[in-house]
Structures are given as structure tokens and as C-alpha cells.
Design a binder for these strands. Sequence first.
RNA 1: GGGCGGGUGGCGAAAUGGUAGACGCGCAGCCUUUAGGAGGCUGUGGGGAAACCCGUGGAGGUUCAAAUCCUCUCCCGCCCACCA
Length: 861
Amino acid sequence: MIFLMSFDHSKIEPKWQKYWEKEKLYRAEDFAKNPKQYILIEFPYPSGERLHVGHGRSYCCLDTVARLRRMQGNNVLFPIGWDAFGLPAENYAIKTGIHPSITTKENIANAKKQAQSWGLSFDWEREINTTDPDYYKWTQWIFLQLYKKGLAYRAEIPVNWCPKDKINLADEEVIAGRCERCGTPVTRRTQSQWMLKITAYADRLIDDLESVNYREDIKAQQINWIGRSEGAIIKFEILNPKSETNSKRLEIRKEAVEDRYLRRAEAKFEIPVFTTRADTLYGATFLVLSPEMGRNYLEKLPSEKRKEVEDYILKSLSKSELQRQEELKEKTGVFTGVYAQHPLTGEKLPVWVADFVLSGYGTGAIMAVPAHDQKDFEFARKYDLPRKEVIKNEKESKFPNEAFERGGTLINSAQFDGLQSKDAIDKITQFLVQKKSAEKTVDYKLRDWVFSRQHYWGEPIPIVYCRNCWEEKSEKQKKEAREGYEFSKIDGKEYAVVPVSEADLPVKLPYVENYKPTETGASPLAGIKKWVETPCPICNSQSIRETDTMPNWAGSSWYYLRYPDPKNDKKFADPDKLKYWMPVDWYNGGMEHTTLHLLYSRFWYKVLSDLGLVPTREPYARRTSHGVVLGPDGQKMSKSRGNVVNPDEVVAEFGADTFRMYEAFMGPFDQTIAWDPKGVLGVRRFLDKVWKSHQEIIGNKQPATSNELQRRLHRLIKKVEEDALNLKFNTAVAEMMKFINEVSSSEYRVAREDWKLFLKVLAPYAPHLAEELWHGLGEGESIHRQSWPQYDPKMIVEEKVTIVVQVDGKMRGKLELPAGTREVSVTELAADLDSVKPHFYGKKVAKTIFIPDNLINFVTN
RNA sequence: GGGCGGGUGGCGAAAUGGUAGACGCGCAGCCUUUAGGAGGCUGUGGGGAAACCCGUGGAGGUUCAAAUCCUCUCCCGCCCACCA
């Protein structure tokens, strides 16, 4: 008898991988008749670190799903590509001088080799790469559509600036207020940037979540991030003896949210304030402006105060993000010398400037209600400002020791006394609206998307600036352009903004010598005169290119739309193909992409949807997230800790099937779990047992499987199928282990035909071994082309059941009975059990609870 | 401060109203004379000789029956955060 302990994965795995490739087993076919299934994993960034075991979690488990779906008769699209623009390649280029395109190419080749060694069933014919001009042509094209819809605009906004490296930093490059590269505290300065108006889609991004199947916490995080809050803008008139005769009135900005970054010095006679708590209006005792807002009012201030206020503003604006965070506890501010009038009581309220008020939220000014807002309370205490209680709650009273922030009954609020907070918010707002001193509004925490990067390794923004086109405009046109976004000021001169014509796309990224951004904060592209100077698409006179590039979120915002038609050079994708494949049926990725990537890509999709270019309202029908894989020590994996698990080593030692199955088995899919090298071994032992059982089955030629084992097999089919679709890969694997344990224990034997069913169940998880054993049974066609076994519902039902016998809810005995035994018989048999009888002594049975085939409970009194 | 998860053996975890601890790791004993992640069998929540008792962070509650549902409370993790 041949008795092999183990199989040689290093031989069988590459063999079958080659076979699958040759047979084109995993090719997705456009317009096939069988139901489509689009399964998507977040495409990786091809870094020098290669793919890690965290990628493995997502790819291996979803690959299992893809394989299961194929066996179930679906036409599966399971693609992969490379999100290859980004900082690491650029930083590496700065250090070594090696061009990013070279390192990127190498990294992709390596990562691809890895992914292939895991036996993933990607359709490699659809591989995409965001740095390929044939791809980013369409990223630029979509940008132009956004521009034409008025969703891309330029604005002066504060950016992070590293004073040592003299470069602008993206938020993600700022770590704890310091520059990621050199550790210098980051300061802020303003610069003109391209922005995308994602806030215009804020409501739809919330509302449409109802139509998709995302895990609840993912939805909650998105809603929270968008941070919609309903409230009112209330205006407070400035009391200024010199200008009170001036009847000039300014309308409240209707779209305060959209114009947040463009707010100019126009609200000079009134201070608009955003609040969600109009019920506390009578408790407002002073107003506070953010430093940015305060600057707009400087000229209104009494001259003796002006210097002091200006100094405070300049000081707080120059503060680094780090300083601001450190100074959180201690609030500072300065009185402006100006008063505003309370819209209902007419009281004189002092106006302060303080940097605890944010310029980026609401109107950049607040009404302070110290009795009912903790921040205001602390500020009022420090500067000895009045506090007035206007909300009372019988159960709690925190005031005057601290602010009482919850709702209650109104007091000291004139005709509104006695109302409940919720009611009062409506009534007071309504009253103010009638008086024209307030407007209802909605505000969001979400801000427009800063789309410019002063870096080299990204998609060039396809815009040029033309001096000639500007000069040809009439004064009226110029004025209009200055108010909108159709112009730009470069080195003090004004230019017209001109989009590159679609026929001239892609705007290719040129080679540069020096990847470092310039000292002025411009991108490295600004140094290439030959590239920067270009004929204007409209007037053909010499104009200059935009030298900023797109953030690396750009290419990933639409990549899943390219897989259905990756080689199209006429459109970003053929509408019919999109209609066939979209939406993505199942999208899995990391929780860290919930707020940025997921939101950005939904936003782009909605824009394309409004243009009629995509077939649905939402891109992803289902979204799940996998948990983080920690190092064996339970800590986050990092080079410096030395706890990084290298998947290549695991695959080399134990094989891809072991690696894949361990990724599935290690724990609940959505949970953070530490990698356990011993656990890997356990999975390998299981596969060895499968191998061994297989040899025995071939050797023994068992004619029929025991009834018991056959039932287990059918239950296994059902469980593995259901578990995989419910993200319970760990219990699916456990069930297979249980089955094999029983097969290998001597009582049971399995017939060939039933063993084949088991191999099919195993195939999505351990595709190489299953294929090897399948062919070992003399089968000629791939196991991955077989259909998923149908379980027999009759076999699922138990023949014999264990009925638990309880007395007063405590387990006292068990009965093995045929399924369907009636209550009368069960009662009789149960009451007669030796282990049960003693518990009746001195008691009477008052009630019997009977759950068929499961449990009987005697309740005594 | 806000949002979202989570707390069950020595460890990763099963069980979402009905036998708590499936499956895996680890550990212990035995077997096969077995040399380098070896294999097989048996055992493995705690206490007890046993009957039995105790046991899912803690306290209460609902129920014939609670890890699971409700109320309060403690602890841990992740994300966001001076957001009006």
C-alpha cells in the first residue's frame, strides 16, 4: 500500500496554475447568457513592500466567493489592477533618482507574481494600471466633465506647508501635526487649489445609502463623516454709532456651505451665526468670530482696539496645527470693542474673536450660550462674561457649575417660556424667519474635496491658462469671471481658465530631472518650460499648463468602471458592457477607505449617472470590510517591530492552499485578528488528512458511503455554501475539518462518488489540491468547471435526534429518538429516565414545554 | 466629547432565545523503535470520589428557558473630534 504522509505543494501548485492560465478558466465573458456576478476587491498600491497577509485576507476570501459563484453557474467578473500613482514611488525617486515609472513597473511585476502564486482566479486579461496613459486619459476626461458641470473650481484655501522642505503637504502626509518626511511642525498658508464640489452631493450620498446593502457600521461612518445637521443662520446686527444711519443691508448668503472657502468681506453690518439650538437663543450673551472671519470686520473696529485684535488674529493664523492641538485646553480670545444687537431682546452683546471657533464650519461665527454649551461656558468663565440659564430639566441640573447641554423646558425666554426644546427650535426659528433675521439651513461637516497636489507622480490636471483669451474678454465678462471660477491669477497676472480639448487627451506626464516640488510651492512640473508652454486650445496663442496633479484618489474613483471594458479607446467604457456588468455585486475592502475612497467613488459615479453615462444610481450593491491582520504578537505589523509576516514565505513552506485556507479560518472575517503561525500548521495538517483520506479511498474502493456520513456530507454542502456568502469563511472551514475527521476515523468510509462531492466543496478554498485529487480520480476536465453540488434536502433532515430533557430549565438527561417523535411518547420516556426521576421527588409537574425534535422541559411548582 | 465595534477556556474562537465552549492551537497521557513543523488514539472550563454544584466583564430584569432580549454599570479596540 502506498502511504504518503503529505503532498508536495511546490510541485502541484505551479502545475495547476499554468493549466488554469492555458485553459483561460477565469475569463469573464461580456454579455454571456448566464447571470453575471461582479465581485471586486480594492486594487492594491504596488509598493516596494509587496503584497502582505492583509491583502491575502481580502483576496483569498473573495476569490473563494468568486469560485463558488462560478460553480453555481454565474458569469463571474473578478478583476484586479494597480493603483500606481502616489507618494512612495515619488519619494523613492527623490532619494535614488530612479524614475517612478521604473519602480512602479518592477513593483507591479512582483505583486503580480505574488497574486498568481496564491492561485487567485483573477481575469488577467482585464488588468488595469492607473498610471497607464490609456487609463488616465479617462481620469482626465472625467475631470473635464466635472469641470463642465461646474463641479470643479478654483479656490484660495489653506494648505499644509512644511517650512523646512518648502513643500505643500496633503493631509495624509501630516502625521500628528508634523511633516511626514522631516518631522518639522507643519504650518498653514493659503494657495489657489482645484476643488471638487462633493458637498453638492452630500444629501444624495446619505439618502441613497438606503438602496444599498452595506454593512451598518459602514453606512453609519459615511453618514457621520458627511455630518449633516439642520439648523438656522441667525443674523446679529452690529451696533456701531458711526454707521447706524447706513441703511445698507446684506442678504444672508443662501449657500453658505458651498461658498465656505470663498467667503469674502461682505457681511460687514451683520454677523451671521449658525446654530442647531435656536431654543437657547435667549441665553446668548456674546458672539465669537473665528480669526479668519474676524479679519473681515477689522475696518469696523474702533481704532484703539484694532491693533490688539489684528495681532491676535495674525498670531492664531500662523499657529501650526500642532500648536492648535496642544493648546486645546486653554481657550484664548480678544474683545473687539464692538457690540451686536440680540435679534429678540435688543440687548447689547459683546463681539469677541477666538480661535476655538472654526472658520470651516457653519458661518465661522457663533452665538455663545455659556449656560448650555460647555465650550462657551469655559470661555465665559475665563473672561468673566455673563451666563444666562434658559433651559431647565427637572431631573438634572448642572448649571451653574458647568453647562447643561441637553434639552428641557424653556425659561427666561419671553413668550417661549414653557416650551420643550425640540418645539422651541421650530417656533423660535419660524419667528425669526418671519422677522427676516434668520434662515433655515443645512450644514455639513463634509468639505469640498481638495483636488490639487503639488507633486510629480500623478495625473496632470488637463487645464491651461490663457492670457490672450483673458484680454479678449470685455470688462463685464472679466468681472463675471472673477466672481466665478473661470479665471486664475498667476504671478500677479490674470488668465482665463481653458479646459484642454477632449481630443488632446491624455495630457501626458513628462519626464523630469528633479522630482522635488519648487520652493514657491508649485509642482515639479512647473520647472519644465517646454511642457508648461502650450498653444491655447481656443485661440492658439501661447498659454501655460496647469502644473498641479491629481491626488491618488482620482484613479481609484472610477477604476471599477474600466474593468468591464478595459481596452476601449473611444470611451471610458462601452455603455452596453456597463449595463451588463454594473453594479458591482460585492465590493470588499478595508475599513480605512470607508470615508475617503468609498465616498469619493460614489460621488464620481453619481456625477456620471447624472450625465447618463452609467446605468444605475449607486456603483456598489454590497460593501463589506475585512478586519486588520496583526502580527503574531498582537501588534500592528511593522518593519521596526519586526513582526511582519511575509506571505511569500508562508506559501513557500506550506503552500498556497494552506495560506488561503488559513486566511479564511483565522477568525471572523470582519474582525481584527493576530496571525498565528501555529494555526497555519493546523490548516496544513487538515489538508494532509484530506490527501491521506484520498489515498485510502482510491485504495479501498468502498462501494457505498454510510448513511450517517452521507447526511453529514449534504449538510456540509449546505453550510459551506451559505457560510461563504455570509462572510463566515471560518466556520465553513471548521465544518470541512469536522467532516474529514469523521472520514478518517475508522468507523466511516466514503464511496468515490461522494468523495467527488467533497472535493467540489473543497475546490473554492483549496483550488490546487482539489484539482490534483480530482484529476487523480481520472477526471479530465478541471474541477473548477464543475457545477456546485446540490444538497439533497431530505438528507439534511436528521433521522435521529437528541432531545434534551430539562426539569425547571436545567438539563437532566438526553434521549436519542427518531425525528418526529410525538410529545406523548417523549414525555413518557423522559419522565422515566433515571437521571430525571430524582428531580421530581416531592414536586408536581405544573407545565410541560415541548419543542419537537429538540427539547422537553418539565416545570414544577 | 461623538460614532461604531467588542468583552465567552491557557490562546484564535463556535453557538443570536432551547445541551455553552463546535473547529483549530496549546497542554497531558499512551501507542507506533518515531530524528528535525511527524503520525495515531485518549483526555482537556472550574470545583468535587460521586451525585451534583458553579460558569459567557459586573448588577438587576423579562422568560418554562438568556452568552443571546431589556435597564443600569465597568473595561478594551477602531474612527472622528474645539463641528456650534
